[in-house]
Amino acid sequence: MTTMKALCAALALAAGALTIAACAQMKALPSLPESHPEALAVGQQVDCSECHEDQQKGTLKNINAFSHSRAFVKNHRFYAATDARLCETCHKVSFCADCHTNQVEMKPSVKWGNRPDREMPHRGDYLTMHKIEGKVDPASCYRCHGRGNNERCVACHK
């Protein structure tokens, strides 16, 4: 029992020392800028490699990986899940909320009908199409409507 107490005390002491050392080093860890220093084009898929070719510092991922190619836009969920703070340097949170929201009635493609270049989901008659797509890939429905926006679902699924 005495040995266990001594071990616990030693571990606590080590953890405390590590915490103090870590806190001291925290001040040396850089932060991303609050916003992108240069104006970025609106309505254009940004190519980060134009300015950030082969730039990689510390634990920051290669910026080229975030160039907004068609592949990136289609699969941006993977990047947003681990690098939301990098997204926030260029995008307002409301940019995400144009599609990813909760309790909204209007389809994003209706709200942004004047911007057909944006990849808004559910264009056209999705009322019919969801009866097929929901069976083909229900996980794609769940990602947005499972625990989030179910306003339109409950309107008919009674």
């Binding site: 925290m26 850089p30 609050e34 703070r85 909760n102």
Partner: peptide, 16 residues
């Protein structure tokens, strides 16, 4: 609906 409404305090170090 209120989609979001929050206060954020951003530290100068460590992306905190």
């Amino acid at each position: 609906s209120l989609t979001y409404g929050y206060l954020k305090y951003r530290f100068k170090q460590a992306n905190a």
